[in-house]
Design a binder for these strands. Structure first.
Ligand SMILES: [Mn+2]
Ligand SMILES: [Mn+2]
Ligand SMILES: [Zn+2]
Ligand SMILES: [Zn+2]
Lengths: 138, 138
DNA sequence: TACCTGACTTAGACATTGTCTATCATAGCC
DNA sequence: GGCTATGATAGACAATGTCTAAGTCAGGTA
């Protein structure tokens, strides 16, 4: 994620303690936090960071294509730092755990012309739902 | 949708003017309204119906499996009366128009075991995004 | 038909998530 | 070190959703 900060600095981003902290919080694999979760974790590292700044920073990262918004649950948006490798999501219906997954095949090919209603289709999002090993054991 | 009301009466549902109106509003194909949209249209038919009742009724219909919740946009949930024929959604990124679509093949088969992380996967949601003919023309 | 009762509806308070504005602080340039 | 535009902040506001206490009525009963 430090390369992210470099890229952004190259694009004229001012480097602030707040932005660094948000980037740190988003670092890792299978990370899909809500804005409030990002804020809580950011506060642990930089107590005075405000909600507005977290929202602003997340919005900028999304605009810049460095973070994805995903809507796997039907409540808050989640923010996904894995923006450079296309992937889909596998969600535990019980506990909400989310994993990045890479299905084979091209789901676009599964939508015949007769089902396109004249749309130009450019993108597909797939969400797999099920039960994670932890929840299955309990 | 009148068969719906019959089914529900059979399950012990009390038939009220409010529930009838919500069911009427949800009647049709490619219907994917937000709770507020359902409320507005319901008010046109029954001015005194409350927001709480619309939310309650939609929630009950979802619990009973008669209506689906879909999260095609990242804001309000949408309510889909097409609960008995499995289908996916095609969304116009510009105007938000939503069509029911029926892809060929089984998307579950595209998720290899190595990408399942020990989950028991039971369900797949697919959202196709693109531009509708109207928006493409404009 | 008239009544009774528990299920239903209502208004509005409250909660959660997200946006906006006015003001204050500071990163990065000179 | 000082300037200035960009960024951060608190808190008001907006949109969506949940809950509660009180009143209403659908449908069974006599
Ligand atoms: Mn992801
Ligand atoms: Mn649908
Ligand atoms: Zn789980
Ligand atoms: Zn359109």
């Amino acid at each position: 994620m430090s390369d992210l900060l470099e890229r952004l600095r190259g694009r004229g981003w001012r480097m602030t303690a707040q932005r660094r902290v948000v980037a740190e919080v988003l670092d890792g694999e299978h990370v899909h936090l809500t804005a409030d979760e990002v804020h809580s974790r950011a506060v642990a590292k930089l107590p005075e960071i405000s909600r507005a700044t977290v929202y602003n920073t997340l919005g900028e990262l999304v605009s810049l294509g460095e973070v994805l918004e995903v809507a796997t649950d039907k409540r808050a948006k989640r923010y996904d730092p894995n923006a450079h490798r296309p992937h889909q999501h596998l969600v535990c219906a019980r506990c909400g755990a989310i994993r990045d997954v890479h299905p084979t095949g091209n789901p676009l090919a599964d939508l015949p012309d007769s089902e396109r209603f004249g749309f130009t289709v450019s993108e597909v999002e797939v969400t797999y739902r099920g039960t994670c090993p932890n929840c299955a054991a309990a």
